[in-house]
Every structure is written in C-alpha cells, then in structure tokens.
Design a protein around this nucleic acid. Structure first.
Lengths: 112, 112
DNA sequence: TTATTATACAACCAAAAGGTTACATATATT
DNA sequence: AATATATGTAACCTTTTGGTTGTATAATAA
C-alpha cells in the first residue's frame, strides 16, 4: 500500500475530490453524488486521500465530513518548483528574474 | 494509455530519472545503470516520460540522450500552489502575508 | 567482415489499481 | 419498534502498471 502524495494526486478523480472539498467540507455521499462511479469507488478514493493526509474525516451524527488538509501539497509544490526553476534557468529566465529584483530595489514602485 | 504529467510523476523511479537528467542529458544505458531493475524496465519509464513531454530523446550515433524538458511541470506547480494557497488562507496566513506587504511599504527594510 | 555495443520492442507475468455488488452497522426518523 | 439513511467493508472482477526474458536492428570497433 504505497501512499505517498504524488501517487495520491495522480488519479484525476482524486484531484476532483480535492477540488470539491477544498473550500467546504462535504459528507461522503455528497461527494459521491458528483461522480458517475459508485459510492464505494468514491469512498475508496476518499480513503486513500485520508491515508496520505490530504483529507481528514470528521464525524457529525451519522455523517462523516471530508475536510481538506492540504499542507502536504507543499511537498509537491516544492518538487515541481525546483525543477521548473532549473528548467527556466537553462533559458536564462532566472537571469531575468534576478535582473528584475535588482531593478525593483532601485525603483520600488515599478510594476511588471 | 493515460499520459498526463500527474500520472507520469507518480512513480518514484520516474522522479529519480527526472532528477538524473535534469542538469545533464544522459543516454539510456547510463540512466539504466543507476537502477537495480532491468534496462528494459527503465527504458519503459523513459518512454512514458517522453510521451508526456517531460523528456526529449536526441540521437547521437548509436546512443540516444535523454534531455529534460520540464516546462510541463508548470501545470503541477500551479495546481499544487493553488491549493497550498487556499489552505494557507484558511489559517489566516494569507492575512499575514498581506499585512507583511503593507508593513513592507511603510518599512522597506523590515525582515520577517 | 565480424564482433560488440546501444537501443527498440514483442511476449509474457504478477501485483496493484479501480471498479462492481452485496452485506453489515450505526445513527436518525416515523 | 420499525424504517430509512449514511457509512464501512468484504469479495470479486477487469484493466493497468511495472517488471521480466528473449529477440531484432542499427551503429561502432576490431
């Protein structure tokens, strides 16, 4: 049972679930209603997301609400950002960024 | 044959391959030597990475060099960044950032 | 020309992933 | 108490994934 964040977000359904609960917690059935696969299938996706810490379940009566807990996406953001920067650097874009920063120091109000 | 970037980077071996060729292009065998699975297995991973546009192959004699082409990681960076921000906002960290920016306007040299 | 080297790829296999239906359980509702 | 609702989970199935070995082909070296 590999349960790292990269693998968790590989599935498009799971990314949709994240999107759904990112702003408002939703109970399992409400999440499931928005997909054309079975409730059980959606439940399994939710389980995977909780197991890797991207969602927490909060019981409320007989319902369980899925609440986004997205700080573990930091790992993904950092990883992608690192290589994006490497890639940019190859094309001298990093130089432009640095140049931009220097210019900003001299002209603080400068836009773009 | 689903071949989106999220799925491509889900596999740890493929992330290692990306790391290896991120700075210097390497031929297939050189990449393969660094793993304890067969050359064929590594070759398949490389193929997946080329199919989703994260690597390009450049022939040089009988060798083929794997060259990183990582701009498509932008999609991943953007996605993770979006939800990371949403998450931060929930805890008022965004407020702090905004506050920080305002403070910076008044006291430009301020640290932290 | 005859190896040797670097790569491509077919054929096959086991395990994991993603799905299903059926059933169990706990909490409302009537 | 009886029924309905929301959820958890077992058992099963199919497809995909990640791996293997073996063979074919193209470029280089001897």
């Amino acid at each position: 049972m590999r349960r790292d964040v990269f693998q968790a977000i590989a599935d498009p359904t799971r990314r949709e679930i994240i999107q759904m609960v990112a702003t408002t917690p939703l109970n399992v059935n409400t999440v499931a209603e928005n997909f054309d696969v079975s409730r059980t299938a959606v439940y399994k996706h939710i389980k995977i997301l909780t197991e890797c810490g991207l969602i927490v379940m909060r019981q409320k009566g007989r319902e369980r609400y899925c609440e986004a807990q997205l700080e573990r996406l930091q790992e993904v953001a950092d990883w992608a950002e690192l290589y994006k920067k490497m890639w940019s650097a190859r094309f001298g874009l990093l130089d432009n960024v640095l140049e931009g920063l220097q210019a900003k120091d001299k002209k603080p109000g400068r836009k773009k």
